[in-house]
Computed example of a mutant assay.
Amino acid sequence: MTTTDIEASRALLAEAAAARGFSAQGATLIRLAENAIWRLTADIVVRIARPGQEAAAAREVAVARWLSAAGVPTVEPLAIDQPVLAGGRAATFWALLPPHEAGTEADLAGLLAQLHSLPVPTFAIGRLNPFVRIKERLVASRAVSEEDRAWLLSHLRELEGQWQSLPGSRGDCVVHGDAWTGNCAVIKGPFRRAVLLDYERTSLGPPEWDLTSTAIEVDTFGSLSAEKYRVFCDQYGYDVMDWAGYPTLRGIRELRLVTFALQIADLDPSARSEAHGRVDCLRGRRGPRPWGWNAVG
């Protein structure tokens, strides 16, 4: 992230804010990555999506409004016509959450149980594609050897085949798509309240996809205790590890995490060791799970 990147994003913010009568003066940058997130002084959060994501941004707003109407606690989009196009990128406007902290696995499980029980919405939501951007990251990576790249691409093809022949699941429903505790916020105060956020990957798919995100914290990362995982399963009412299709979803999640690390390593050489270690794990060079992966990015 450079000063030029920040200033370019700030210019997009000013254009989008002005289009809906808001001022970007004094705005604070929350995060600048694939999406840019800013806080206006009016306690409004503006999310500027990647180029070409207008439909996805509109769907995020529609999903949040649908969840709110269904009584599922969620971050709230402003009641304005949105998204707004600025410089060819879609910007969406959200009410700033009160002081909050990341939710627990139990908080997340309760919200997922509510989400997964809802009927399919009337607006188009699309089907889950768990492989989005994996191949592109592998092809573009400069941090991976050619031999490892070829193996990972072959592994991707195997997983794509397994995805097409998954054993019977609990039935497709609306899934969050990126269900981890970082996308579950708990409002601080006397009345503790957990809310969902970030609907970039929300779509129709097997609910097991959402549950696998927490399962691999035990199984792959080794960062979540068996006791906390049991609380998660009890709160949701199901253990995805008992499902015959779980190894396939775990494999897809792991490959996504490997390619994300490789993408980061292209920009930050200090992440190369972690990225290469993850590749070694998939290739059987680091012994059995859990592998103790560390966060990158």
Rank of each mutant, 00 (worst) to 15 (best):
V139L: 15
A140S: 15
L156Y: 13
A271D: 08
Q114I: 01
A215R: 00
A261Q: 03
R230G: 05
L108F: 00
R193A: 10
L85Y: 00
A143C: 10
E200V: 07
V75C: 14
H176L: 06
P73V: 01
R31L: 11
A113P: 04
G277E: 10
T3Q: 11
R59K: 15
A109Q: 01
E105D: 15
G126K: 05
A124F: 10
S117G: 08
A109H: 00
L211C: 05
V186G: 07
L85V: 08
L138D: 11
I48V: 15
D239K: 01
A215E: 03
S165H: 11
A56N: 13
R31W: 04
D5H: 13
W163G: 03
V139Y: 09
R272D: 07
E158F: 08
L159F: 04
L96R: 11
Q53A: 15
G21P: 06
T104F: 01
L282P: 05
V218K: 02
I48K: 03
G26K: 06
A79Q: 12
V120A: 13
A64E: 07
L40D: 06
W243K: 06
A27F: 03
F123N: 09
S68E: 10
T28L: 12
V139W: 10
I37L: 14
L156W: 14
A215I: 00
S165R: 15
L152A: 13
L78C: 08
A64P: 05
L29G: 04
Y199E: 07
A56W: 05
C184I: 02
A57K: 02
R272A: 15
R50S: 14
L262P: 00
P73W: 01
G87L: 08
I44P: 01
L262Q: 08
L67G: 03
P99S: 09
D268V: 03
L262T: 03
A33P: 06
G277K: 10
W38V: 05
T181E: 14
M241S: 08
L282N: 06
E254C: 14
T4Q: 13
W291N: 06
A79K: 12
G251N: 14
E227F: 00
D43A: 13
V61W: 00
L152M: 15
R278T: 02
A16D: 08
E34C: 04
L197A: 06
P290N: 11
